[in-house]
Design a protein around this nucleic acid. Structure first.
Lengths: 144, 144
DNA sequence: GGTGAAATATGTAATTG
DNA sequence: CAATTACATATTTCACC
């Protein structure tokens, strides 16, 4: 991974819909050369995907929260592949510390959040932090 | 926002680089009609951006963590706009509960993580949960 | 990695239902 | 008023240097 690859990653993280033509202008390389580099970054798994980001509130999901769960050993949430498919679960991380895992969730109403907490309660003790605002909802990675 | 808009959001969240032509085939509409709907979703702020997602480990940032901070009132991290520009900070959420805010961070080495903790310590009491793995690093929103 | 030509995609404007 | 068609422009993708 050289300086040009890092430039390409920065541009595509900022705007995933840039054309190879526009990218080629920005990194001063021909379009085919850019296309080949990008395909290599995709094949190597450096780029894991291209995603439109949707504002949860404007999409009708104004309640977002970080939920830590202290799982009941054998009933651990991480052992149930079903949970990763729940539409409320935007992120799921296995972590060290008091909790077993942390979920970022988004729901339309408090009633649905309560129902989700009940469902999560089957796996362990949930502890929720409601998100008031997200000064940085996402930021591009600066590769080393 | 009708059913077609929701289809478009689903397709663009799954693959932000789809052409209007391909989108038009998938939702059974002409390309100009699709382009206009997408521009409306962008203008309305439903779509907040299009971003390539980069694998932190493959980009040389194998250490990721969730860091909660109990800020020292007046020195609150949220009052320093500088923090949002630190390249290690991938997400920053203001939350309810014991902590003032939660940060998702990524760094190349434990030594750099230690340095980051020191810097964060100026704002409040940090409590870190190291991320072991992310079964769901990101998932598309299902609008209501 | 660059170049040039063919195939494909995009943007605009006029037109239709 | 939103969607379609038609056409000019731009982009992607090959083959080849």
């Amino acid at each position: 991974m050289d300086a040009v690859d890092r430039r390409l990653l920065a541009e595509l993280q900022a705007d995933a819909r840039l054309s190879y033509n526009e990218l080629s202008r920005r990194v001063s390389l021909s379009a085919p050369a850019v296309a080949e580099r990008v395909r290599r970054l995709e094949a190597d798994g450096v780029i894991s995907g291209y995603h439109a980001h949707v504002d949860p509130t404007r999409a009708g999901l104004p309640i977002t929260a970080l939920v830590q769960i202290q799982c009941y050993g054998p009933r651990c949430l991480l052992r149930d592949p079903e949970v990763a498919t729940w539409p409320e679960v935007l992120q799921l991380h296995r972590v060290t510390g008091g909790a077993c895992c942390v979920l970022l969730v988004a729901v339309p109403t408090m009633a649905e959040f309560e129902a989700l907490c009940d469902r999560l309660g089957a796996y362990g003790q949930p502890s929720s932090s409601m998100i008031l605002s997200s000064p940085v909802p996402w930021r591009p990675l600066a590769p080393r």
